[in-house]
Design a binder for these strands. Sequence first.
RNA 1: GCCGAGAUAGCUCAGUCGGUAGAGCAACUGAUUCGUAAUCAGUAGGUCGGAGGUUCGAUUCCUCUUCUCGGCACCA
Length: 635
Amino acid sequence: MSIQITFPDGNVKSFEQAPTGLEIATGISPGLAKKAVVVKVNGDLWDLSRPIDRDAKFEIVTRDKPEALEVIRHDAAHVLAQAVQELFPGTQITFGPSTDVGFYYDFARAEPFTEADLETIEQRMRNIVKRDLPIVREVWSHDDAVKHFEKAGESFKAEWIREGIQADETLTIYKQGDAWLDMCLGPHLPSTGRVGTAFKLTRVGGAYWRGDANNAQLQRIYGLAFANDDDLKAHLKMVEEAEKRDHRKLAKQLDLFHQQEEAPGMVFWHPKGWAIWQAVEQYVRKVYKKSGYKEVRGPQIMDVSLWKKSGHWDNYQDNMFFTESEKRTYAIKPMNCPGHVQIYNAGLHSYRDLPIRYAEFGGCHRNEPSGALHGIMRVRAFTQDDGHIFCTEAQIESEVTAFHQQAMQVYADFGFTNLDIKLALRPEKRLGDDATWDRAEDALRAALRAAGVDSWTELAGEGAFYGPKIEYHLKDSIGRAWQVGTMQVDFMMPERLDAHYIDEHSQRQRPVMLHRAIVGSMERFIGILIEHHAGALPYWLAPVQVVVAPIVSDADGYSDEVAAALSTAGVRVETDLRNEKINYKIREHSLQKVPVIVVVGRKEAEEKTVTLRRLGTERQETMSLADAITQLTVQ
RNA sequence: GCCGAGAUAGCUCAGUCGGUAGAGCAACUGAUUCGUAAUCAGUAGGUCGGAGGUUCGAUUCCUCUUCUCGGCACCA
């Protein structure tokens, strides 16, 4: 019987015996065979060396395709594993997948890998690539595989086969040369030589076996891998540039804030950093007002009994701060919602009043694990642009839709257009019954659709204990994603804290509570803002918008006049009257990312004009002071 | 929290195979008044993260501890 292979262009070719992808490719052209990485057989990725034993739609995936890159990276991980085991006998292998930019592999070894080891390992990897070992796919039985790995002292692999793989699942083994193998789904390259040279080990870190902190601690070695050297070089360059945008570095350079040992995970805002905060806060306050929120303020500490009632104590006591006075224990608030419910409960509400929307720049403290702290992105004391909407179930969809549209506008105003939207669904540890969760989750889906969102990622098990949530994520300079905004449907808290309204039949009803934030944590958002703009914030957010710099001291008086006029017009302006050359001042304020430098010399002083120089250009523009004020206030 | 690395002047960093530290920039003082990315000269500045130990002697070696960084776990 013959095998029919259908090519992407519709051509069909029949073979007497099952051909391998490599054979077919060679038949077309040796050049193609060389560039081939894997093949697509009826849509699935197969090894080049695997015989195609059925009629199939066939496609060759060459090195430059995205799917190929994944295979190259995955192979690099295997080459890494072999290199480590050759160099450090007794080290156990576990898992090693490809990542967005490369690969990693987790190893079990008592001794830690050092930076120096990484170089040695990388050299050995290059050696294995040079050896061009054939990579061969084999199908093994479960028993054989378990026996093999147990005999080899690979207890992690053996455990995974026993517990992680169904007995009727096909179990594939990939041999890399004669002496090394790993269990893996594949597909892989036909030989190690095809990995190429564009890889580099970057760092070693910790990881837990099967991602669980109760399990053994493994060592993870990370590497980069690309299809060619130019791509790798370009990526390294990009990382180098990104590191310069780090908000922690820029905060020092631009004198925005600092953190110190006595207050881990907390922020000391300096005048310039606080000016950014104020600009963001005033903007958000306008949004509150425009979208129907009333700003409120709850107390910073409340009796622990309230947190027991709300359910926070059960779920988060280890991450809460407490304080005591006169034999009472108070919790320092980790969230604003119970406070807002108290404000809601202080009065009687008719169905006609709903939705009621409260907002607060709510300062919260959470005792985050020390290892989680990260600059001002993850802190122990932060301020949320928090809001709570008390409404009926029928009002959820329109509230969520309106919120979404408002949120997207806010992000755009700050310069963000690339948001990741996620829907976090019911966690294992939760309040309420499944029917309630079904309604809450569906309400969020419906609202997203109504807002015109066509794609989002659903995260099973990641919701809050009281309800599901939409999450808005932004990326920092080195590609780490951070949650900023959120919208959460909550049927539980009103019940727990006994909130109600009176319906049209004079009956008491439970309102639904929506928890929402757009920037999320002010600290985190400002951190991302700094990185996104590389410190050069847009004019309306810049801590110092204008510096007036005289060329000669004769112009000092006029500089003060100009600055006073701008300040009166609401511009954040400073003067630089130091006895320095204008070049020096230009350089310094440019490095400080001041958007506009106003230079005044004798000429300007006489003619009552100013010369503007905007950040990022060398162009000079002379105009009357009045014109300058107009220009610098409308932006 | 766990694994690993680190902490030296305001900042960026060098250094001491154990004999109590140095540069550049910033700061301060003086001179210079110079039209768009660094004017010159001088001065001052550090119990080398904290505690304990070994030692005649510790910033250096050891232990503990705090914080930071990278990774993982966590993230209401």
